[in-house]
């Protein structure tokens, strides 16, 4: 199509984009679309595949599967309430511990407490935690963490046994060692994403706080953290998501026992550990049941991420709008 033809002399430097320019434009758009749909497709396929294979179990056990507390292959009784509880409990504990240390570390590394070079060394070490294989964490938990916390656990149980959290003794593996190791595993994620959020707080906001005579801690706690809160919340959601799905270290540390207990020292089980330990020996009858459990884990993870995203976008919309 010719545009402005009548006004042109033919000696202009400017001209319309060429055919190949348009082609590049269109093909780039196409590739981006394909990639985006591919990801959605993979997630959809995953859900469908797992859901489809779980159908026989869903028909047989219905929602009672979610509230049952027994897992007995011989009697063909299956319930995953202790696993759901264990997954959420261990993840929340890990989030509380890992979140506190991760965010503190992010503050420490971004708010000029350290010379830039030393901060980089610290950051690299924290990032390295993410590269340690899960199974190594598991061994470390068994041989270091459990013996280390046992005296403390025994003392707490003896003195404060009436508090539900300390109501059992630590027999070895259990919720607390599992959660502690899990906390360390999710710490690099939380620290890294929180650091990004804190670094994005504009300098002029800090300046405003200092200009009003805030001390460094007042500026951090009352201005910088609230300003970065959406990003830090995102970091916590991401960390929680990781904790929900973590398998190997938990399978080694959580005790794999179908118990429903508030006690930090009692052994328990998680969905991911249940799946990992039962799949190798699962017969044709058990596969759909495990698929059902996998579907539940997947849905919990999806729900956590979606709720997290919703809260974040809601709070950032509130921030801009007048409400």
């Amino acid at each position: 199509m010719k545009v402005f033809e009548e006004a042109l002399t033919g000696e202009e430097i400017s001209g319309p984009p060429s055919k190949s320019d348009y082609l590049m434009d269109r093909s780039f758009r196409g590739i981006a679309m394909v990639c985006a749909w591919f990801i959605i497709g993979v997630v959809g396929l995953l859900l469908w595949e797992i859901g489809y294979k779980a159908i026989p179990a869903i028909r047989e056990y219905h929602l009672g599967f979610l509230t049952g507390t027994t897992w007995d292959v011989n009697k063909q009784v299956f319930g995953i309430l202790p696993e759901i509880w264990g997954t959420l409990y261990s993840s929340f504990l890990a989030l509380a511990i890992g979140g506190f240390f991760g965010v503190s570390m992010a503050i420490f590394l971004t708010q000029d407490f350290l010379p830039a070079r030393l901060a980089l060394v610290f950051r690299t070490i924290v990032d390295l935690l993410a590269a340690i294989p899960s199974v190594v964490y598991g061994f470390w938990g068994i041989f270091i963490v459990v013996p280390f916390i046992r005296p403390v656990a025994d003392w707490l149980n003896a003195e404060f046994g009436w508090i539900p959290f300390f109501s059992t003794t630590l027999s070895g593996p259990g919720m607390l060692p599992a959660s502690l190791v899990l906390a360390i595993m999710i710490l690099p994620t939380i620290a890294a994403v929180s650091q990004d959020a804190l670094r994005q707080v504009p300098y002029r906001i800090k300046e405003a706080a200092f200009g009003l005579g805030a001390t460094r801690w007042e500026a951090i706690l009352k201005v910088i953290l609230p300003t970065a809160s959406a990003g830090i919340f995102g970091a916590l959601v991401l960390g929680f998501g990781r904790a929900l799905g973590e398998t190997m270290a938990l399978a080694m540390l959580v005790g794999n026992s179908n118990q429903l207990s508030l006690s930090l020292f009692s052994p328990g089980n998680t969905l991911a550990a249940l799946l990992a330990l039962n799949f190798p020996e699962a017969g044709e009858r058990e596969i759909p049941i495990l698929m059902y459990a996998a579907l539940v884990l997947l849905l919990i993870t999806l729900a956590v991420n979606m709720i997290g995203t919703a809260i974040m976008s809601l709070s950032s919309r509130q921030m801009r709008s007048g409400k």
Binding site: P202, E207, F210, G211, L212, G213, A214, V223, P226
Partner: peptide, 20 residues
């Protein structure tokens, strides 16, 4: 310096209200 800034107020080049 924190004390000095409590007695001498400041308004900056870019408006910089807090996100509250």
């Amino acid at each position: 310096p924190v004390v000095v800034r409590r007695y001498i107020g400041m308004v900056f080049q870019q408006p910089n209200p807090f996100a509250m």
